[in-house]
């Protein structure tokens, strides 16, 4: 999905492959799919962002423009990933959008406290889901320019 030389714009961290596929499809509809990189758990996300493990040697100064982060994941969950991102000078300025199944999730509040920039409820209905992902993805890519 990542073309050589192409900067990764959206980092999608999502353990559910179906949700990931739907999210990517939604982003593709917004013509930004080619810049999406998908990681299927929090541990991999940490390795990717900080150039360790499987991603040892990766140029960590190439940062995604926005991170879409699922909360409920095995091994390292979304909240821990968020905490790491927001407490590291290298990554703390990357906007993070939380993906959650329910707005009732008490963790959403905690995520804001940890510095999350916004959140998307993943609705059962596909159309709403696509719309939400595409809109938020675009918003953070096009209208929000994080300071380098």
């Amino acid at each position: 999905m990542v073309e050589k030389g192409n900067e990764i714009e959206i980092l999608l961290i999502e353990d559910n492959m179906n949700d990931a596929e739907m999210a990517i499809r939604a982003l593709r509809k917004g013509n930004i799919a080619n810049k999406v990189f998908h990681l299927k758990d929090g541990a991999l996300a940490m390795q990717f962002l900080f150039g360790t493990g499987l991603y040892e040697g990766r140029n960590i100064n190439e940062k995604p423009k926005v991170i879409l982060l699922d909360l409920k994941m095995p091994k390292v969950n979304g909240m821990e990933v968020l905490k790491q991102i927001k407490s590291n000078d290298l990554t703390k300025k990357i906007p993070v959008v939380i993906l959650t199944s329910s707005k009732e999730n008490p963790d959403v509040e905690k995520c804001y406290d940890l510095g999350a920039n916004s959140y998307i409820v993943k609705p059962v209905e596909f159309d709403s889901f696509s719309k939400a992902v595409a809109e938020v993805g675009l918003y953070w890519l096009l209208y929000n320019h994080p300071t380098a």
Partner: peptide
């Protein structure tokens, strides 16, 4: 438990709905 239900039951529903849509 409620949260877990809402998360775990919604994910497959979302897939059913989404894939049917696709």
């Amino acid at each position: 438990f409620s949260y877990s239900i809402s998360h775990d039951l919604r994910a497959p529903l979302r897939a059913i709905n989404g894939y049917a849509k696709m």
